[in-house]
Design a protein around this nucleic acid. Structure first.
Lengths: 202, 202
DNA sequence: TGTACATCAGTGAACGCGCGTTCACTGATGTAC
DNA sequence: TGTACATCAGTGAACGCGCGTTCACTGATGTAC
């Protein structure tokens, strides 16, 4: 009760630097783009010295991996929520497909980071588990409640087709294939995505 | 006939620096990855000073855009070749789909560059035209010889579905979704891609 | 309840790096006469 | 065929930048007694 949580600089110790760094890093990525991310800038925004992040993340890659893992968790949540209200398999699949693309378009930089191999530590358990969960949710929606498998399993081809089509659409939209204007991805998704999904039969 | 084309350093002037820079840049990208591309390193490999490229390309982005445009031209050629031998629409589509993914997996870094917005000048006419041609080839294969349209056109949904599914599969493979081993993309494509394409009905 | 002390989470200066681009320049080429 | 000269395609040194990480340090916290 003694320390004032609202003060600008209440003490030498930050108190919650880890989440603050993550938030700052996400802001940097969103504003400058993944290619121009910088740990120093992140520290600056969090109001700490450039050496501070090392106490919470091994290095830059560690911080970015934590963000990617959190993003995968959120994607999983979004897929779960989208699928929850559906009355049958077909509509659950569609709902998840729309949710997948919606997630990507809502947070383009974060979505791109989730897949940017050279910036991530793919062996991080948090990351691996969150990514796996997201895929399994999609897989279960496509193949039904009973079964679920890894992407290598041949039986999983229908899920892979679904994943590919939504992932591809999202990437094309974000990468400017449908025009470079800021709202082009959104407009393309609204106008075309439902029709595109009509062509997926699983 | 006077100048010796095989000499290491035949003269002050390079003679064919532009293509040499493009080749060097492609090597840098392939070896170090897009994120660690550097114009200086490219000049070094081409055996010229760091200022030399400016005489042939406005700046780094100009060089990368030239490479991306060439890559789109090659992708177009690959799609054309793949489609040429097909006996019907269905098999032409499949052939082009396989060719698309094959192209991506054969030259991952170049394929990624083609879509890496922040590194490119999308307004460059060469780039825009080459990209458009590749899509139109795909669109014609999907919808038949008579018709062709822009990605925004609602009638183009079947082509967009095809594009999305192959693009998504390629990206997932390259981004490590099917395992991080060097041959994982190739193995996944061989094992799964034909099955995945079975689920596309246009 | 008070105190000693280990541990933790910060600081801020510094290191060394490689980058893209600019600058004044020079060597080679090619064209006009 | 020879020469003057404009143009082109290079040089290499320098500028200024921002980066990630390391280092010796210090202030705050929390725990053992």
């Amino acid at each position: 009760m003694s320390s004032d949580l609202n003060s600008v600089k209440s003490s030498y110790h930050h108190g919650a630097l880890r989440p603050a760094l993550i938030a700052a890093a996400e802001a940097v990525i969103a504003e400058r783009g993944l290619d121009r991310f910088s740990l120093r800038e992140t520290a600056r925004r969090a109001g700490v010295s450039p050496a501070a992040p090392a106490h919470h993340f091994k290095d830059t890659r560690g911080l970015l991996t934590a963000i990617a893992a959190a993003a995968f968790r959120e994607l999983g949540d979004a897929l779960e929520t989208a699928g929850a209200g559906a009355r049958d398999r077909e509509s659950r699949m569609r709902a998840q497909g729309l949710a997948y693309v919606d997630f990507a378009l809502r947070q383009p930089a974060r979505f791109s980071l989730m897949w940017r191999e050279p910036l991530l530590d793919r062996d991080d358990p948090d990351y691996a588990e969150a990514a796996k969960r997201a895929f399994l949710l999609l897989d279960r929606a496509v193949r039904g409640e009973e079964a679920a498998g890894a992407p290598h399993d041949p039986a999983v081809a229908p899920s892979l087709a679904a994943w590919s089509i939504v992932h591809g659409f999202a990437r094309l939209a974000l990468d400017g294939a449908f025009g470079g204007e800021p709202d082009a991805p959104r407009r393309a998704a609204e106008a075309m995505l439902p029709r595109v999904l009509d062509h997926l039969h699983v």
